[in-house]
Structure formats: structure tokens, C-alpha cells
Design a protein around this nucleic acid. Structure first.
Length: 286
DNA sequence: ATGACGGTAGCATACCGA
């Protein structure tokens, strides 16, 4: 019994056991510049887990206190100006690693964080896959596209290892892959880019062959495309000139528990917001 | 053909993103 924490103790007495859980992901495009919409999202949807990408700040400058006031714990892999990922959780979580094993840059760019959530008894893996454009130089002299391909290869190997061990996990984030032509408003615009070329699509689809379920594909069809990104330019959101880039993948344990998934495009329509919309799924705990 | 728009760093404008 925890007599030092009255809130925890009194909550436990009255709380019924939750039957579902909400797990979400959002490329926030700067956690500091867009903290207002982040707070609106958290209070509106009350996700149990939120994976954030492109927080664009160093770990020690992350707004831990503000989020703690909203009732969220946070584990963060930050970086100055670029990239950066974090996982918010209503209950305390434990860091497993903030470097993708065998990543081509050994985690120099902050694109990966994996945690264990004791209350959900699952791992959460949050990824911000390299963009890959324009295909010129990257920090290590290889092209940005090669960096992206090598990064996806490393992800695939690591996911394979977890599945071999029957470890339950949820993999979410910004994959920077346009899996099908119907995932973009105008396929011609992205033809022969690092988003659509076969080697990139093959590596994305390899996640299925390994045994993962793409939560969104359970409920969507090519005839009714859904998008998670709209460019700031050219009134793209107003015209629904979008792209589907963000995904949630479920290990076999969770695939059977999937109840629903949706993209909260309302958040994309707000002032001072990210160019991505959040993606959230509801899972059964029974 | 190019840029658009927006964030960061840092103070003018370059770099990056998708």
C-alpha cells in the first residue's frame, strides 16, 4: 500500500478495471511550437499512450512539467532542431532503448524510442523513419535514400527478432512511405521519389510478411482513401491534397484486440498546428 | 521550371521537411 500517495490510493478503491486502451501516434512538428494543439488533443482524446515524432528539441528542453500537469509521464529522445521522438503515457513506463539496434548511424539522429508499459504489459516502439529525399548527401557520406533503406532494413531485422521471441508490442510512427498510389492525392507528384520507389515500398511491406498487422488497413479501402499529412502550402488541407504516412502496426497478440482506429483530422484544421494529424487506435484488454 | 509554408537557429537567411 502506498500511504504517501493519496491520489493513487483513493483512485484504486473506486476505479473499475478498464476494458479498452487508446494508443496513438502524432508527428507534432515541434512539441514547443505546437504545445497548444497537443494539450487540446490530450484533453479531448485522453490517449493512454501517445507516440510523438519530430519534437525538434533537446531532451532537457522537453516540456516535462507541463505534460506532468496534464497527467502524463514522458520518455524522450531529443535532438537540437531536427527529428526527436517521445512517448507519453498515463502510467509510468520504462525505457528499453532509444537507439534502433544496428541503425546505420548508430542512433546519431533521434528517430527511435522503445519502452515497456507495465500496466499494459506491452512494449511500445515509436519510429520516425528518414525522409530519404532528395537523395544527395547525408551526415555519413552515403545518400539520404541509402540511409533510409538501411534504416528500414535495421527496423525489419529488429522487428523480426521481437516476433521470434513472441514479445507483444505496438509499433507506431511516421514511416515516410507511400505504400500505395491511392495513399496520395496525386501519385504523379511523388512518382520516383524516396516515398514510392519499389525498394522503399518493399521494405515497408516486409513488416507484414514478418507478421505485423497494419491497424488502419483493417478498416480502410482503396476506394475511400485516408490521409495523415497535408502540406502547409497551397491550401492542401482545404483541398484534401493529403498523403498517408503515419501508421500503427500490431504484433499478433494485439492484432486480435483491435477494436477501431481513426485519424483525428480535426487537429490538422486548427491554428498553429502540425502538418500531420494524429492516428489513434482502441484495443481491447479482455 | 520554380516556389509555395512553417519550424529552428539566431538575427539574415540557410537548412530541412514531404
Amino acid at each position: 500500500m502506498d500511504i504517501d500517495n493519496n491520489t493513487y490510493y483513493s483512485d484504486q478503491k473506486n476505479k473499475s478495471v478498464p476494458e479498452t486502451v487508446c494508443v496513438s501516434t502524432w508527428n507534432i512538428n515541434s512539441v514547443k511550437a505546437h504545445s497548444n494543439v497537443l494539450n487540446i488533443y490530450l484533453s479531448k482524446n485522453q490517449p493512454d499512450i501517445l507516440m510523438l515524432q519530430e519534437i525538434k528539441t533537446q531532451t532537457d528542453l522537453f516540456p516535462f512539467l507541463e505534460l506532468s500537469a496534464s497527467g502524463y509521464h514522458a520518455l524522450v529522445k531529443g535532438e537540437k532542431s531536427y527529428n526527436g521522438v517521445a512517448i507519453l503515457s498515463k502510467t509510468p513506463v520504462e525505457l528499453i532503448t532509444d537507439v534502433l539496434p544496428d541503425a546505420p548511424d548508430n542512433g546519431e539522429q533521434s528517430r527511435f524510442i522503445e519502452i515497456f508499459c507495465p500496466t499494459l504489459k506491452t512494449r511500445i516502439i515509436n519510429v520516425y523513419v528518414p525522409n530519404g529525399e532528395p537523395g544527395t548527401s547525408d551526415p555519413h557520406g552515403t545518400s539520404k535514400l541509402e540511409y533510409k533503406l538501411a534504416w528500414l532494413d535495421a527496423l525489419q531485422r529488429y522487428i523480426g527478432q521481437l516476433l521470434e521471441q513472441d514479445i507483444p508490442f505496438i509499433l507506431g510512427g511516421d514511416f515516410n512511405v507511400i505504400e500505395y498510389d491511392h495513399d496520395v492525392y496525386n501519385p504523379a507528384v511523388f512518382k520516383n521519389t524516396a516515398f514510392t520507389i519499389l525498394p522503399v515500398r518493399q521494405r515497408f511491406r516486409a513488416l507484414y510478411y514478418t507478421g505485423l498487422t497494419n491497424a488502419l488497413r483493417r478498416f480502410s479501402t482503396p476506394e475511400q482513401p485516408v490521409y495523415s499529412y497535408w502540406d502547409y502550402r497551397g491550401s492542401a488541407f482545404k483541398k484534401n491534397n493529403g498523403i498517408l504516412l503515419d501508421h500503427i502496426f500490431l504484433s499478433p497478440h494485439w492484432a486480435d484486440k483491435l477494436l477501431s482506429i481513426n485519424i483525428d483530422s480535426e487537429m490538422r484544421g486548427m491554428e498553429k498546428t502540425s502538418d500531420h494529424a494524429p492516428l489513434q487506435c482502441r484495443l481491447s484488454l479482455l
